[in-house]
Amino acid sequence: MPQEYLHHLGAVLPALLRGAWIAVYVVVAAELIGVSFGLIIALLRLSKSRWMNIPALIYVDLIRGTPMLVQILFLYFGLPSLISAISGRPWSIDPILAGILALGFNSAAYVSEVFRTAIGSLDKGQTEAARALGLNRLQTFRFVVLPQAFRWAIPPLGNEFITLLKDTSLLSVIGVAEILKEGQLYAARTYAIFPTYIGIAIVYIVLTLTIANVLRYVERKLKVPT
């Protein structure tokens, strides 16, 4: 029995690693959207103008208030059916692209809260000193606010990256051949259910530990000596 499990663990691994590549690809692309769009949302939320901060607040509430699985299905099934109905022509979206967009714009809502808190927690004296030195608003943000906010944001961003990596498993429902999907296909073919799910779990653990350690390294590198 154990030998048979080990055999299946070895046999499923190549498929799981293929899935891991897809998962990493999706997460990296989604986080590029998540971090950049999240920063924009955070700045809109911090704006004094209602025209800016209320739409941003609605966005965050909408995204946080609905399950990610629903958002994925909406983007992959709901939106194409609407567009097809309006345009009168069949329209579809690539599942990986749908996955990147769904995860990215979902993550942006959470990342925006991280940045909003980080920027908000910065002492007002920092921006005053920068402005008093003759830096304009953009330079103040770029060279004084952002570097400090980013350092503050690394641990919560790490949480977000790890959560997002695990959430790529949700993309199995729209047929993306990520880790879970690849494993399920193998299990269905061989009936080696237990070793397959063990293998799936191991691959996720390895990936999340890697992310955690990379972020710990970045945090150490950026740490200001005391």
Partner: peptide, 30 residues
């Protein structure tokens, strides 16, 4: 602010920059 300098009660040095870079930041970036 390019012709008026200010010193604050709470110093407001930039904690993520070395002393040298605190001083050179504004002259360089402007």
């Amino acid at each position: 602010c390019r012709s008026v300098g200010m010193v604050f009660q709470q110093f407001n040095l930039f904690p993520h920059l070395s002393v040298l870079k605190n001083i050179t930041l504004a002259p360089l970036k402007t």
